[in-house]
């Protein structure tokens, strides 16, 4: 009996966390994810506001990266993953046999933990995504590459060596290149998975500044475990613990007046 009650509690639908008035763009609807027999995401119900910077916060292993990767279904790459529930980008479901995942992924740029430049030169790292999605002549392409490199303040550093392999850049430059590459495909949403964790403080700050500026025009979802970073740039904070969303609040409220017990513990540094 007790276990049944527990199960019911576990699978029971939670209320959707939606602590904002603006238009939402990503809606996670009762998402459960299993890798083999491990229950990694448990009844996740959140909505993420448009053109804001939302940070997913939590100790490592809480499922925050997995949640991020669900949003553009990179979970497809891992065998043995089972998903219940769904995520909606606008009104389009992410999971489902009718979804054109390639078209949907175009709405989302991705920035990973370490920079992974494509095995091409600097120029083509930006141009590749553009060429995949549309036909441009040389001049248009040159213009766009320059524009996006300027967007991330990389143009002046690389304009003389656009044809040299991207891996020759420093890690910080590489990460900015990756951001430009993500922007160049003209997404509405940018997903970032601890984008500064491999960077030196100066490059980190540059990326953070970029993010703050970009949140006017893009919806940013960033995973991090660095509290101070979240404090500095987040508009909203989603706090996850052991696969569950504990709370989602506007950043200021979250840090000054945490509601849940686990959040308080986390903020006081108990998990580190």
């Amino acid at each position: 009996m007790e276990t049944q009650e527990m199960d019911a509690k576990m699978t029971g639908k939670k209320e959707m966390a939606r602590p904002f008035e603006e238009e939402g763009i990503i809606r996670v609807d009762n998402l459960n994810l299993y890798a083999g027999k491990t229950h990694i995401l448990k009844n996740v119900n959140i909505e993420i506001p448009k053109n804001k910077l939302t940070v997913i916060l939590g100790p490592s292993g809480c499922g925050k990266t997995t949640l991020l990767k669900c949003m553009n279904r990179l979970t497809d790459l891992t065998p043995d993953i089972k998903v219940n529930g769904n995520i909606y980008i606008g009104d389009q479901p992410v999971f489902g046999s009718k979804t054109d995942i390639v078209a949907l992924r175009r709405k989302m740029g991705l920035l990973s933990q370490r920079p992974f430049p494509l095995p091409m030169n600097i120029y083509n790292n930006i141009a590749y995504g553009l060429k995949l999605r549309g036909k441009y002549n040389r001049a248009e392409l040159n213009d766009l590459v320059e524009y996006y490199l300027r967007q991330v303040n990389l143009w002046d550093e690389v304009k003389d060596r656009l044809r040299s392999p991207a891996v020759r850049l420093s890690i910080g430059q590489q990460q900015r290149l990756c951001l430009a590459r993500g922007l160049a495909v003209n997404p509405d949403i940018i997903l970032a998975d601890e984008p500064t964790s491999a960077l030196d403080p100066v490059s980190s700050e540059a990326i953070e500044k970029q993010f703050a500026a970009l949140s006017k025009d893009f919806t940013l979802v960033m995973v991090t475990h660095v509290l101070r970073q979240a404090r500095r740039i987040a508009d909203y904070v989603i706090f996850m613990y052991l696969g569950e969303v504990i709370e989602m609040r506007p950043a200021q409220e979250f840090f000054e007046d945490p509601r849940e017990e686990q959040t308080k513990k986390y903020l006081s540094g108990a998990f580190n």
């Binding site: 370490r114 995949l132 999605r133 495909v185």
Partner: peptide, 12 residues
């Protein structure tokens, strides 16, 4: 694997 992820997320 991240390289595949990156490329997929560019819309490839």
């Amino acid at each position: 694997k991240e390289l595949t992820e990156v490329s997929l997320s560019l819309g490839a």
